[in-house]
Amino acid sequence: MAAVVKVEGLTKYYKGLNLPAVDNLSFEIEKGAIFGLLGPNGAGKTTTLSILSGLSSFQHGIVTVNGFSLPTAQKAFKKTIGVVPQEIALYPNLTLQENLFFFGRLYGLQAAELKTTIQTYLELLGLAAHRHRAIKTFSGGMQRRANLIAGILHRPELIFLDEPTVGIDVQSKAVILEYLKQLNAKGTTLIYTSHHLAEAERFCSHILILDHGKRIAAGTPQELITRTGQAGTLEELFLHLTGRSLRD
């Protein structure tokens, strides 16, 4: 399988901080993978995801995504990726349909195509009946599902998902993960961060565990668990690798 993401010696410092948020990180992600970026708070997951999706700059290293060398502001690159931020990145006073039409048009989709795509996604994610309601009136689960749709309207080859199931009910979580699995089965590569280790263990094909911006472990969930021989689950392995001290 070809690598859609190649990272070599990636280092990122935030202004005013002496310690790097990402420290000499190297890894590759193959096309069609569900790649989990895991780690405790402040490990560098979201920063890495921001860099890979072209939202953040970095000081050192070589990063290639979908054949584009980063950083880049090229629209061609942005059309190949989908970003689902951790925040509900939708306009709360606009209706779901208004939000989706807006983001869809910015992806360059024409009205007729957009209408069909939106209808399909709304039905698949159980939001068709709520299209004319303002986002601010949605429950947490509905907002997460809407947030997902807004990031994948243009059917990207690669999707970045920053904690897409955080703070939602079990049913919404199941719908989202099930739909993401379907997308992946059709060849879409998913890069995902989460604090739900049991969910990641079941969902991801590959995992990279980070701590203090550094790579701690990488492999398939099963490989990682058996490699250490000291843990029965990903969560136990995680605690073994990152320790039990509290993080800010």
Partner: peptide
């Protein structure tokens, strides 16, 4: 604040 700007930056729009 709401994160929509982050999403806009990830979109093919300058």
């Amino acid at each position: 604040d709401e994160g929509t700007f982050k999403r806009l930056q990830a979109l093919p729009v300058s």
